[in-house]
């Protein structure tokens, strides 16, 4: 049976930021069933609908450009798929684009290399610039992760890039952090290094970057530098 692979870019905003990754998967599979969209199933003992998300987003954060690879058993027009699925999705989940992807390409989740988080501070402070410089010069930054067992992690290697931008309305911090199976840093871990960062800044995930040989590209094919320029234009003042 022929299988068709689509890559969906969607935003996860408003109330949907409170939905966990596991719950989000159910939201999509149920929407697909309501829309009678012919999703393919995995092989094996307990077949599951074939949906592959790029990278889980922490509960409480909005995502502006999230990704999902969807495998169908018949070839639908991208526009039709977009319309039918969007009708079945709850408010707060908006499909932005759909593209075809080569079936033989690596699974989406395996390609994920980094994620760009943006933190908006209500006002600007010189201290932020100094903090950015300190972080980038540091050899090691230890974050303590709680959970079943307390763990210490050096997050410095996971901070790929940090940029702070002064604005009349406040400050914007762009954090490109490692993501995916090899480990990564969490935005709140970086933010906690800024004075009052965790309390005052509003954070969201802007986009995801995939590995492409030696470079990082958004799933739409933009480089980090290109993307950063574009994004600054669209940010709320």
């Amino acid at each position: 049976m022929a299988i068709y692979r689509y890559r969906l870019c969607f935003s996860k905003e408003k109330e949907m930021k409170y939905i966990s990754h596991l719950d989000l998967q159910r939201v999509f599979t149920r929407a697909l069933r309501r829309g009678a969209i012919p999703v393919a199933f995995s092989q094996g003992f307990n077949p599951q609908p074939r949906l592959v998300f790029a990278a889980p987003l922490a509960v409480g954060l909005e995502g502006k450009n999230e990704y999902l690879d969807l495998y169908l058993t018949s070839c639908w027009e991208k526009e039709v798929l977009k319309q039918v699925l969007q009708e079945q999705l709850p408010g707060g989940l908006a499909i932005k684009t759909i593209t075809f992807v080569d079936l033989s390409a690596e699974p989406l989740s395996a390609l994920v290399e980094a994620a760009l988080y943006v933190a908006l501070f209500p006002s600007f402070s010189e201290q932020y610039v100094l903090t950015v410089a300190d972080i980038l010069q540091a050899k090691e930054i230890v974050a303590v992760r709680t959970g079943k067992k307390e763990r210490k992690v050096d997050i410095r290697p996971f901070i790929y890039s940090l940029k702070i931008k002064n604005d009349s309305g406040g400050a914007q911090l762009f954090m490109l952090l490692a993501a995916g199976s090899k480990g990564g840093a969490r935005p709140e871990e970086v933010l906690s290094l800024f004075p009052g960062g965790k309390e005052t800044a509003k954070v969201f995930r802007e986009n995801i970057f995939l590995r492409n040989g030696e470079t990082l590209l958004t799933p739409a094919g933009e480089t980090y530098e290109e993307y950063l320029q574009k994004v600054q234009l669209f940010l709320p003042a």
Binding site: E15, G60, Q88, P90, G91, G92
Partner: peptide, 17 residues
């Protein structure tokens, strides 16, 4: 309040249907 509770999905009220 939703940002402060453990399971905010309990209180959203905007489920499908």
């Amino acid at each position: 309040l939703l940002d402060k509770v453990q399971k905010p999905a309990r209180y959203l009220g905007k489920e499908i249907n």
